[in-house]
Amino acid sequence: MQYLIADVGGTNTRVALAHDGILQIDSIQRYRNADQLGVAEILIDYLHTHAAGTHPSAVCIDVAGPVGEAQGQLTNLDWTVTTDQLCKASGAQRGAIINDMQAQGLALSHLPAEAFRSVIKGTAQSGNRIVVNVGTGFNSAVVLGDGPKLTVPGSETGHVNLPVPSPEIFELHQYLAGRFGFASAEEVLSGRGLSHVYAFLAKHSSSEALASSQHIIENLDNDPLAVKSIAILLEVFGCVCGNLALTHLPFGGIYLVGGVAQALADHYPGSPFHSAFAAKGRFSEFMSQFSVHLV
């Protein structure tokens, strides 16, 4: 059976075909969301331009946002999509929508060992797992079980209160609360979050344009504020991952995904991520059981 599948993020959408459950790697196409009207239009263009003559029996997409009954809404993009729209656009008889973090969690067991890069080596070897995404937005999902039968509940972790593990991050919290009315974890742990941290350190007013995360990362060699911004983001990231570890006890590991998480690949060693992850008072030693991997 032929399936049409898509990963709909806040910035890009990737569309592909799968045959009898196997992804057709050479069928993957990426669309920049800013250039598109919506998910249905992307699927129509994909089938017309890249898969002419294909008649999928089912269509399934994941979206970066909350999913209700037969409907998904992106958190960082004004798009809503329904299964009816998916079926109409693709001609498929069946349609399904899941949260993107649920998709990431379900995919973990299908990845080869070389897909993972160790950030923290823990002592535990098996158990439940967590996927944590830092990209356009921030979210996580706990992966319950092992093998083919997994349960991955949905989550909107990015919109919890920003933790304040240090006086400096408390000041950042106050800055974000004053600017946005609420300081969420996502306002630091995301592409725009890195920009917010930089603006805080530079004492920029809310009317000044934000430096892009790409610009900040590209100027680490000559901009001390860029270096400090990365350090603060990693401190918050470590703190949040540690909180998630104590909440869900993922003895099978914590898996970091997303464009920003990957862009920081060379900055985890020796960074505040490690100390903030383990700084849990009398449970600090307990934290040594948890492994953290970059996907």
Rank of each mutant, 00 (worst) to 15 (best):
residue 121 K to H: 10
residue 122 G to S: 04
residue 123 T to F: 04
residue 125 Q to N: 11
residue 126 S to K: 11
residue 126 S to F: 03
residue 127 G to F: 04
residue 127 G to W: 05
residue 128 N to E: 14
residue 128 N to Y: 02
residue 129 R to D: 03
residue 130 I to C: 12
residue 131 V to Q: 05
residue 131 V to T: 15
residue 134 V to K: 02
residue 134 V to N: 06
residue 135 G to M: 07
residue 135 G to N: 06
residue 136 T to D: 08
residue 137 G to Y: 04
residue 138 F to G: 06
residue 140 S to V: 07
residue 141 A to M: 11
residue 142 V to M: 14
residue 144 L to C: 11
residue 144 L to W: 13
residue 145 G to R: 09
residue 148 P to I: 11
residue 152 V to A: 12
residue 153 P to V: 11
residue 154 G to H: 09
residue 156 E to A: 10
residue 156 E to D: 13
residue 157 T to E: 15
residue 157 T to R: 10
residue 158 G to E: 06
residue 159 H to I: 08
residue 159 H to F: 12
residue 162 L to C: 08
residue 163 P to Y: 05
residue 163 P to M: 04
residue 164 V to H: 08
residue 165 P to Y: 08
residue 165 P to G: 06
residue 165 P to M: 09
residue 166 S to Y: 05
residue 166 S to K: 03
residue 168 E to H: 03
residue 171 E to F: 03
residue 173 H to N: 15
residue 175 Y to W: 10
residue 175 Y to E: 05
residue 176 L to W: 02
residue 177 A to D: 14
residue 178 G to S: 12
residue 179 R to V: 04
residue 180 F to V: 04
residue 180 F to C: 08
residue 182 F to M: 12
residue 186 E to K: 07
residue 186 E to I: 05
residue 188 V to M: 10
residue 188 V to W: 06
residue 188 V to P: 07
residue 190 S to Y: 04
residue 190 S to I: 04
residue 191 G to R: 01
residue 191 G to D: 02
residue 192 R to E: 00
residue 194 L to P: 00
residue 194 L to H: 01
residue 195 S to V: 00
residue 197 V to R: 00
residue 198 Y to T: 00
residue 198 Y to E: 00
residue 199 A to I: 00
